[in-house]
Design a protein around this nucleic acid. Sequence first.
DNA 1: TAGATTGTTAATCGATTAACAATC
DNA 2: TAGATTGTTAATCGATTAACAATC
Lengths: 210, 210
Amino acid sequence: MVSQKTIERLIVYRSLLEKLITEHEEYVYSKALATLTGNTAAQVRRDLMSIGFSGNPKYGYDVKGLCQQIKTFLEPKDGIAMALIGVGNLGRAILGYFSTMRPTFRLVAAFDTDENKIGRVISGCRCHHLRDLPNVLTKTPADLGVITVPGSNAQRVADMLIENGVPGLVNFSPEPIKVPTTVHLETINMTLLFEKAAYFTNATEKGETP
Amino acid sequence: MVSQKTIERLIVYRSLLEKLITEHEEYVYSKALATLTGNTAAQVRRDLMSIGFSGNPKYGYDVKGLCQQIKTFLEPKDGIAMALIGVGNLGRAILGYFSTMRPTFRLVAAFDTDENKIGRVISGCRCHHLRDLPNVLTKTPADLGVITVPGSNAQRVADMLIENGVPGLVNFSPEPIKVPTTVHLETINMTLLFEKAAYFTNATEKGETP
DNA sequence: TAGATTGTTAATCGATTAACAATC
DNA sequence: TAGATTGTTAATCGATTAACAATC
């Protein structure tokens, strides 16, 4: 199978390839793709090999063809339907963010327990009460559940999503949650990220960059 | 030097140790620490070795002592002063988040270019105009700059922060930015995170979990 | 003492890089 | 053809895991 690291790089390649398309570049060499994304040429060739895309020793890789192939490889053809739970500042930031990313990523429903938010439409996405989650997700199933509630409720919300057939979760709450192995969990731990940034900033200042 | 992976795990250990302290646990074995954080006992012992903390074959590791040692290792003793640029939804979410994390992480100033936000105090942090950044950061220097502006301005903001002596950046904007090697950069690419979650959710559904 | 865990070294594993024949 | 790049295998590197003597 394709490793997590390779997937991450493929996402970065695609983002760059889209930029190259707007610049009307037709072909790109592994060396150029590597330099522009902070990798090595060998790494790029190995990654592209893993998705079965071939280049040409004379011209390099076809930009449009490669971009399309990565897209096909990464994204299911009917896109990704997402449900978001917790319409606080972070939730609203994510709703706003993805409203520009259609049609691949579609936020199909938002949930909260604050009555003031219920019924409102934020960035084109309707906010429901959390108790209606089973009904809403039965009508419009979601591939990805985005958890942006305070930590103490994260596990409960995760359990609800899983019970209602959501196969993947993205957890932004600081509380670690448990899921069965059949469910994919991506955790974005802000505290950890900032602690790490703080540590390495300090280390970099002290010249520890070997 | 201590690897990035080890630093990440140390942060997780500490978070758990703090929980154990509230539960009045005095000692913990490497096996328990490992199970509770999703690692192996050997991994834990190796990580603790790298920061020079010793346990006892009879009782395991002293919870309070270990927690304190990790804290001392990770965090400069006068805490981390942060400046945040871009007071949109994401910026406000982060301001709210860190207002509860004092005194280690202190948001000393926020900046925006929207006149409606200038002068307001959000989660205890005053919002200044971006043009005043040099003055404000001269008076209250920051260790970490948090970039939550739309992508197109990210590089310009990063350059301003670096020019004004900020040694570490956390970039939430989708646009990749360039920094000199003397500056530490932590990138949180939401698009990448969601693309990855979507891919692995799909792969997990198809049973590709070897 | 007997039994379990720590600290640390050696073995293993996986991912990255180097090398080079095949190709254009 | 000569020169450069691709595709792929072999070598290297770094991180994880296994093993075990020392310790309590």
